[in-house]
Simulated scan of single mutants.
Amino acid sequence: MSAPERWLVIGASGRLGRELCDALRGRGHIVAAPSRGRLDVTDRAAVARYLSDWAPDITVNCAAWTRVDDAERHEAEALRINAEAPRYLARACRATRSRLFHLSTDAVFSPAAGHPPRPFPEDHPPAPVNAYGRSKHAGERAVLEELPHRSTVVRTAWLYGRYGSSFVRTMLRHAAGQGTVRVAHDQYGQPTSATDVLCALLALADAPPARTTGVFHATCLGSTTWYGLAREVFRLAGADPDRVEPVTTASLGRPAPRPAWSVLGHDRWRELGVLPVRPWAEALAAFCRTEVSACCGH
């Protein structure tokens, strides 16, 4: 085993952050996971002080404004958390020579009209369709501008895991109940397990910084719709998939527009000689087996 490293995980109470901290401590690394009360990442001076005191080898930014619809009415606040705070972190990492892994999203993309859908490569020009996507794109630019030689933007999508709420866990609750559930059938993406994302982060950490700068996509392989995902969750939970009712995104009346296609490609991993993600259906089956067994007390 390699020597323990000092890691700083921002947003450690979230869906990915908690699993990442578990994995890092299991590997024997030294982990700082400050709460929002201990470190306000929108306070530039506080960020600089904290990193100077802790001197991490690697910083991971999992913190974000993720309320997509609310961002339409509070874009300035979303920008403070998703763009200004990452800039402060990148500057502090530059001063302390820490590597920075910054989590981003598939929502920075929108397919061009008239083009057949294909996975977006890492270097495809972003074109977000909502305020949340704009704020996350601004955060990506800030990180790569401030820390070009020691930063990695890691885009993921449709995330679920052992901690926190998620679409998958919501569908498991519906599957255990009665009645139908209405789910959009016209948005395509990649359901992704937090376990697969943390494995991707660990693979990046094991590689030299010079080979991991820029953008990587950490999503499970393949694609489906929210409707297809919900049906598969119901099937894995032993419920009738026909209880899932397909509807259009427009009929759900959400304030923020959603991209119809946000499937990501993984060419950068092939350059590293690594593909640390599974097909989405395989990852989902493993997760649902664990969740259903836990609910049933097995």
Score class of each variant (00 low, 15 high):
Pro276Asp: 02
Asp206Thr: 01
Gln187Thr: 11
Gly179Cys: 06
Glu291Phe: 04
Cys220Ile: 01
Ser262Phe: 00
Ala90Trp: 09
Phe101Pro: 05
Cys288Ser: 06
Ala95His: 11
Thr96Ile: 05
Ala194Pro: 03
Ala46Val: 07
Glu291Asp: 06
Glu145Pro: 00
Val197Arg: 00
Thr249Ser: 15
Arg270Asp: 08
Ser52Asn: 11
Ala90Met: 07
Pro209Arg: 07
Gly253Arg: 02
Trp158Tyr: 15
Asp196Ser: 13
Ala256Asn: 08
Leu264Asn: 03
Pro117Thr: 01
Pro34Met: 04
Arg27Ala: 15
Arg18Ile: 06
Trp226His: 15
Val263Cys: 06
Leu24Glu: 02
Ala210Val: 02
His115Thr: 13
Val60Ile: 12
Val143Asn: 06
Gly297Thr: 10
Cys288Asn: 05
Arg99Met: 09
Trp65Glu: 14
Pro116His: 09
Arg25Ile: 08
Gly26Gln: 01
Ala203Asp: 10
Ala83Lys: 01
Leu252Ser: 08
Pro34Ala: 03
Val68Ala: 04
Thr248Asp: 08
Val47Leu: 10
Cys296Glu: 13
Leu236Gln: 12
Asp70Arg: 15
Arg38Gln: 14
Arg162Val: 05
Leu202His: 04
Leu284Cys: 12
Val68Gly: 02
Ala200Met: 05
Ala250Leu: 09
Arg150Trp: 00
Pro255Met: 10
Ala218Trp: 02
Gly273Thr: 08
Trp54Met: 07
Gly17Met: 05
Leu147Trp: 11
Arg150Cys: 07
Val233Asp: 09
Ala260Gly: 04
Pro209Asn: 08
Ser52Asp: 12
Ala230Asn: 04
Glu122Lys: 07
Gly273Arg: 09
Arg173Val: 03
Asp123Arg: 13
Arg44Met: 05
Ala71Lys: 01
Leu275Asp: 09
Trp7Glu: 07
Val31Lys: 04
Leu24Ser: 07
Ala78Asn: 11
Ser2Phe: 00
Arg243Asn: 06
Pro111Gly: 06
Lys136Leu: 09
Val168Phe: 01
Ala142Val: 13
Leu103Met: 15
Cys199Leu: 11
Asp186Glu: 12
Gly179Val: 01
Gly189Thr: 13
Thr212Pro: 10
Trp65Cys: 07
Tyr188Cys: 06
Met171Ala: 12
Arg91Leu: 15
Leu103Tyr: 03
Ser262Gly: 03
Glu146Gly: 00
Ala92Lys: 00
Thr180Lys: 15
Gly177Tyr: 11
Pro56Gln: 02
Gly228Pro: 01
Gly222Asn: 05
Asp206Asn: 10
Thr195Asn: 09
Glu232Gly: 00
Ala218Gly: 03
Trp226Phe: 13
Gly28Tyr: 02
Gly273Tyr: 09
Gly297Glu: 06
Phe234Pro: 03
Gly26Ser: 08
Thr213Arg: 13
Pro126Glu: 08
Arg150Phe: 02
Ala260Ser: 12
Asp186Thr: 07
Ser35Gln: 08
Thr42Glu: 15
Glu122Gln: 14
Gly11Ile: 01
Ala64Trp: 06
Arg182Gly: 00
Leu24Arg: 00
Gly161Thr: 10
Thr192Met: 08
His124Trp: 14
Thr212Asn: 04
Val181Lys: 07
Ala90Gln: 08
Trp158Phe: 14
Leu236Glu: 13
Ala63Ile: 02
Leu39Tyr: 14
Pro125Met: 03
Leu201Lys: 03
Ala281Gln: 15
Thr213Ile: 13
Asn61Trp: 03
Ala256Pro: 01
Thr225Tyr: 00
Pro259Arg: 12
Val68Gln: 06
